[in-house]
């Protein structure tokens, strides 16, 4: 295979342009990092294999496997609960080369049906001092620290678009995964909702 420098385009296309948007303030109230995963899979446990999968995944990926709406990370790999016996597993970011693309450990694949979602989902990391105020315009669940903490995850709707949402840290940093076909609409909602706080969009590969 030849080493070609690939031009990666985020699933949301040009809907979210790198740079500053909305109100001009020194520090943007909301920051978006466009995440470029090396690989993303949706995993569904085979019938009756959820417990065996959790043990295998914890051994081979070193991740505390979530059995409830939770998120766990180790290095650049993370897992998000996406439903009963279902998960989103993401490895990355890929950096500048596709050659680091990983595969699932054999101990995990024997317990799951895995579907590649690398180009099917747009993953974003959201942060900034006014992030919760911006999210409150579209998210109907309570993201106040008293009811949603780092490690919590939810599947819910943002402005009628179904998304996976998880909290990474107290700063706060949230992760969001939205289907490619809805990513443009989500970006439109986010740009409008964060405009009054100032929005900065960064290429996640530059983190």
């Amino acid at each position: 295979m030849s080493e070609t420098s690939t031009l990666w385009r985020p699933p949301l296309g040009d809907a979210l342009k790198i740079g500053r948007h909305g109100r001009r303030v020194d520090r943007a109230g909301v920051t978006v990092d466009i995440v470029r995963p090396a690989r993303a899979w949706s995993l569904v446990a085979r019938r009756g294999a959820a417990d065996a999968l959790a043990i295998a995944a914890e051994q081979e990926l070193g991740l505390p496997w979530p059995k409830a709406p939770r998120y766990a990370a180790r290095g650049s790999t993370f897992v998000v609960w996406t439903g009963p016996d279902r998960w989103l597993l993401v490895e990355g970011p890929a950096g500048m080369s596709d050659s680091v693309r990983a595969t699932l450990p054999a101990g995990v694949t024997s317990h799951v049906y895995a579907t590649d979602q690398t180009d099917a989902l747009q993953i974003l990391h959201l942060s900034g001092p006014r992030l919760r105020d911006a999210l409150a315009k579209g998210v109907t669940i309570d993201l106040h620290p008293r009811s949603f903490a780092p490690g919590n995850a939810a599947i819910t709707q943002v402005s009628h678009l179904t998304v996976n949402l998880w909290q990474i840290s107290d700063d706060p940093i949230f992760g969001v995964a939205v289907a490619r076909s809805l990513a443009g609409s989500f970006a439109s909602w986010l740009t409008a909702s964060a405009a009054e706080f100032g929005l900065e969009v960064r290429d996640g590969a530059d983190i």
């Binding site: 996406t82 939810a154 709707q157 179904t162």
Partner: peptide, 13 residues
């Protein structure tokens, strides 16, 4: 009444 509902905007269960 016992009813079937699906959490279509969430976990799909």
């Amino acid at each position: 009444h016992r009813e079937l509902w699906q959490h279509t905007g969430g976990c799909r269960a």
